[in-house]
């Protein structure tokens, strides 16, 4: 059976249990539910919230370089640290935080396969103690925007041979739903998808227990069934760019695509954009 192209970015719960206290390792929990960390978390884990920590509170963007440096320094994460992400919902938000860390050029990022649910299911210990690491002097040397797509990049993709992957549910893709079921606040005025985009719902990439499917299964889904090739210039999108950061992770690290970007504006931008072309079956 073929291996992932970058198996080194994934670690198991056993590995985390063993190495969570090691020097140079920082475990980060990132969840959709802002209170889950407070209910209990892996000993020593740092909470990073996708919304209140990583997003700018005024304009629709991420925090800037200075704020990211401040956040990392306060949390006690240094530039050299290996950060291990885990979270709820199949690591959905963990992958999002991972992607944002990569935007800010953080070098060593890992994901704990299976996320919070697997850790809980294995009856591993949790604590409510919040760690207090000494502050660091974190420096962002440069942003890596090669992993981020903006709407103008998407416009250029339409009609080209470069693939667009829509990772929302099929009902959102077809325009039957304007939003993800049960998330109507993040709707758009128009339904459908960006012309030419293929639909591969994000959760297709994970097994029942929340761990990623095997390399062979992933290849068969993304490459055989949907015709992606590792050299392709791929843009993935969803509704606000969180589910697509999960697919971005799968394509970039598990399947080894060199040029894959996440369009974080996603459908809540495109479906509200005046005169933006839309395809609806």
């Amino acid at each position: 059976m073929a291996e992932y192209v970058h198996p080194e970015v994934l670690v198991g719960t056993d590995w985390v249990a063993k190495h969570k206290g090691d020097d140079g390792i920082k475990v980060v929990e990132s969840d959709e539910d802002v209170l889950l960390y407070e209910v209990g978390h892996i000993e020593g884990a740092i909470k990073i919230d996708w919304q209140t920590d990583l997003q700018d509170q005024l304009i629709r963007d991420y925090i800037d370089k200075d704020k990211f440096e401040k956040l990392m320094s306060e949390k006690g994460i240094s530039n050299e640290d290996t950060v291990v992400f885990y979270g709820d919902k199949n690591n959905w938000w963990a992958c999002y935080a991972f992607w944002v860390f990569k935007l800010f050029g953080h070098e060593k990022c890992l994901v704990m396969n299976g996320g919070r649910q697997k850790w809980v299911d294995e009856d591993r210990p949790m604590t409510k103690d919040v760690p207090d690491y000494p502050a660091t002097d974190y420096k962002v040397s440069g942003l890596d925007e090669s992993i981020r797509a903006f709407r103008d990049d998407v416009v250029k993709h339409i009609g080209s041979d470069n693939p667009l992957i829509d990772v929302r549910s099929t009902k959102e893709y077809t325009g039957e739903l304007l939003h993800m079921e049960a998330y109507p606040q993040e709707g758009a005025l128009r339904g459908g998808h960006i012309p030419g985009a293929a639909n591969v719902p994000w959760a297709t990439a994970v097994k029942e227990d929340g761990t990623f499917k095997s390399a062979d299964e992933l290849r068969s889904i993304y490459m055989d069934e949907n015709g992606l090739k590792t050299g392709d210039d791929v843009i993935a999108y969803c509704r606000i760019g969180e589910r697509s950061s999960h697919t971005w992770f799968v394509l970039r690290y598990l399947l080894g695509f060199e040029n894959v970007r996440n369009y974080d504006g996603s459908w809540t931008e495109w479906g509200n954009l005046v005169k933006a072309p839309i395809e609806k079956p």
Partner: peptide, 10 residues
């Protein structure tokens, strides 16, 4: 303001 507007719908 404290939890983020995206969490408020539910």
């Amino acid at each position: 303001k404290k939890l983020g507007t995206r969490r408020m719908f539910g």
